[in-house]
Amino acid sequence: MRLWATVLPPCAAILVLLAVWQAATTGFRVPDYILPDPLAIIGTIGSSAGSLGSALGVTVEEAMLGFAIGAGIAILLAILMVLVPPVETALVPVVVALNAVPAVAFVPLALIWFGLGIWSKVGIAALSVNLVVLLNALGGLKAPDAAAIDLLRSYGARPLGVLWRLRLPAAMPAIVTGLRIGLSRSTIAVIVAEMLGAYTGIGQIIYQSTAQVDYLTVWAAVLVAVIASLLLYAVLVVIDRKLVWWS
């Protein structure tokens, strides 16, 4: 019931938007290169479902691989930094410096290092996920106050026990927030990297269709990417409810 209350208004808003869009583009005879109408875009998705589908598969695979690698490394690093303070001191400058550079600036480097295949995209996705999750996880792991840690210690808990029973559960909401931001960043990072150099993928389709002045396909690819990232986001919301059930 509550799920419907949260899902229904946005869906209605999107439907209204699509209807207005359709009416305006057909009513004012807007040329396709400026703004194609939604029905034509959906028609293009239908007619080139095969190529869009296989490209989307590659893009999602790259984004998921990058997301898993980036998030995994981030959480392990955050735990290591909390357990072994010198590691944190050593890594802080790297994190601060990397954080100042927009991830898209590393795309050329990733292409030079890892080539045009999937690994350059996986690398960029991992990088863009990594920092968000790392900073969130670190903040979350440090959130429990000293009194709670002392209490556990006085009952004989080891650092690992404190980590498992107190720090990780306390950090969970912050980590999940980081994962959520990271997920949307990873898909965008992959698409952007694919535009600069790739054999296939949604970003490559966008790039090629732009070069061929085929704007219907550009819009179709963008729409497919939007739907895919909405689905991924929904999956993550479900995971969020499972992991942070107490909030």
């Binding site: 946005p10 808003a13 999107i14 938007l17 898209v104 949307s184 898909t187 965008i188 698409i191 952007v192 535009m195 949604i202 970003g203 966008i206 732009t210 550009v218 819009w219 690819a221 963008v222 990417a225 939007v226 990232s229 909405l230 986001y233």
Partner: peptide
């Protein structure tokens, strides 16, 4: 909804 559109993807 507007933010799910990867606007940098259709800069063209």
């Amino acid at each position: 909804a507007s933010q799910t559109v990867p606007v940098i993807a259709f800069g063209a």
